[in-house]
Amino acid sequence: MSSVVVNNIIKTYGKKKEVTALHGVSFDVKQGELFGIIGPDGAGKTSLFRILTTLLLADEGTATVDGFDVVKDFKAIRKRVGYMPGRFSLYQDLTVQENLEFFATVFNTTIEENYDLVKEIYSQIEPFKDRRAGKLSGGMKQKLALSCALIHRPSVLFLDEPTTGVDAVSRKEFWEMLKRLKEQGITILVSTPYMDEAGLCDRVALMQSGKILSIDTPQGIVSTFGKKLLAAKSANMLQLLNDLKQCTQVEDAYPFGEYHHVVIKNDGKKELTQFLEQKGYAYELKETAPNIEDCFMQLMKQ
């Protein structure tokens, strides 16, 4: 059964609809799935989330959440989903506990009733429960925001860039929490600009400029790469990149961490090696497995 169904959603902004944020986006998310929407800033992730949480109206297309229409049944949706916007949106001048209590009451429940669901997350910030939310660190703010979004046991959880601006350790912890929430049967839609987080989702939609490039499992997306990928390194990385781009066997070359990733035409490794030998400087060249980011780069080119 599908928990979220998005059907050809178009969203434009401006009086003359001059800016198009979403160009006919469609996908569906199964019940209990951890679904990632991966894309850089400006891809349309926040617009999409706001349409699904009934905060914005789409220009065209339909969408349902838990079987309810986002326009007609917005009241029903607002009762059953949890939403965590990209920007920290809790009351900064209320304490940690006051924020959580407030959201529990607003959703007609109590902290005690659903404590088991948030316990693991909330217990980490509980020592600071009398601290004002505005004075928390970035990671703690995210944990509090997640606790507040979960306190009413939502059936679908929308997390808009929950890990942006959060340190690496907190990010890892955050994803582990999401996995455990998934085990509770909650459908989770999470957006992120970080490609490395895509692998942690059940399925991902790669988004760019308001369009979905591909929807599949992370493994599925990687398997569609279909080309040979090499990693190259030398003392002068800039020169290496320029040289790589000149080689006829190279389809694409781009910096990737401490290496350059090089997409080559079928079996062009030998020729590339010869090409680089002529340049006469020391380099390292090895085969490597493509990941989501490589796929994203490839999809963007198409």
Partner: peptide, 13 residues
């Protein structure tokens, strides 16, 4: 402005 309206709107209130 603070975005809190965004969160409270997505509630039964």
């Amino acid at each position: 402005e603070m975005g809190t309206m965004e969160v409270t709107l997505v509630s039964p209130m």
